[in-house]
Nucleic acid binder design. Structure first.
Lengths: 185, 185
DNA sequence: TAGATTGTTAATCGATTAACAATC
DNA sequence: TAGATTGTTAATCGATTAACAATC
């Protein structure tokens, strides 16, 4: 059973068992795990049992795609607002939302009880948008821009940098040259 | 200078120096690094000096946003095709591209010399799309779906799972309970 | 020269894996 | 019982950090 999970997740059975040992949960030797309860305990530990409210800053192609993506709500992330600084898009409808201006960010974060801010702005305004979100009072940031943003330590940031991922992929695809490179040790 | 880089990247100066030591490149004590050459050596090592051709599978909200995103081309990733299995979208224009059917994937990958396939399909068809891309001959996959895809070892896969990133963020935001949890060691 | 910054070695840390006694 | 699978301890691995001699 730990072997099945491992295979499906691309890990070893050892890692699976090790990780599960952190949960308040036990399997039964030879019988495996009680899937229903495992599911429940895991989702509880990961916080998937409650809904998180998310605001998006940036209503360009990416922001719009995120706002329209139905997968978030299925996973317990409710998109409750989308913001942009450009008068050209403020007021436009995206799905069931209306694009609001950055001036309204603070109030909206407060009244909608937004927990998370998603950065979907161009790289050069990432820091500014991050600052605005932190001031507005979100408790975490998902950064989709290529920029590294500086925020207070109490606000965790997770980076989801697609271009960086592409670079990593390219690097792993590249046949490593076996000469001409120095090794540090 | 290594301190400046470290600060900007959110690392320690030690890590920066360690990492740079893998390059065929040296700084000068007290003077720092020759930025122009560093830039060149780095981009060379990361393969950023040549263009990679990318095809997108899935022309939903996400696929469309990716196709329209101008940041890729600026970074040397040329979107050279977008594919979908649904007759409803085949033939539509997205930017300068036309959505093609999956039947055309193999030929297009060959004639466009596509290196990378991006998975932007719903989770339940991720494996199928991955298989099609591998058969078509791409050399690497960027997986934007929440699914774990199985592919031959010679084809690297990088996962860019936004929902997983959101879960990680939520986990880091959550005030850790100090009791009721078992520690493994 | 003296102080600062590099490159490199050694120490630390966390995560993954291996090994195996306990258990069904 | 015998074989398989779990939970847990110990070993391995790679990445990050600390420390410091070399150098400008």
């Amino acid at each position: 059973m730990s072997h099945e999970l491992a295979c499906a997740l691309g890990l070893t059975s050892s890692t699976v068992r090790q990780d599960l040992s952190y949960l308040d949960f036990s399997g039964t030797s030879k019988r495996g795990y009680e899937t229903k309860r495992l599911e429940w305990v895991l989702s509880k530990e990961l916080g998937a049992d409650r809904v998180a409210n998310v605001v998006i800053v940036g209503a360009g192609n990416l922001g719009r795609a995120l706002a329209l993506h139905s997968g978030f709500e299925r996973s317990g992330f409710m998109i409750c607002g989308i913001f942009d600084s450009s008068a050209r898009v403020i007021g436009k409808r995206i799905g069931h939302l209306e694009v609001k201006g950055m001036k309204e960010l603070s109030r909206e974060v407060r009244v909608r009880k937004a927990d998370i801010g998603m950065l979907a702005v161009p790289q050069w305004s990432a820091q500014e948008a991050a600052d605005a979100l932190v001031r507005a009072g979100v408790h975490g940031l998902l950064n989709l821009t290529p920029a590294h943003v500086q925020v207070p330590e109490c606000v965790p940031v997770v980076d989801a940098k697609i271009i960086t991922s592409l670079r990593e992929l390219l690097y792993r695809m590249k046949p490593r040259r076996s000469s001409g490179r120095r090794r540090a040790r």
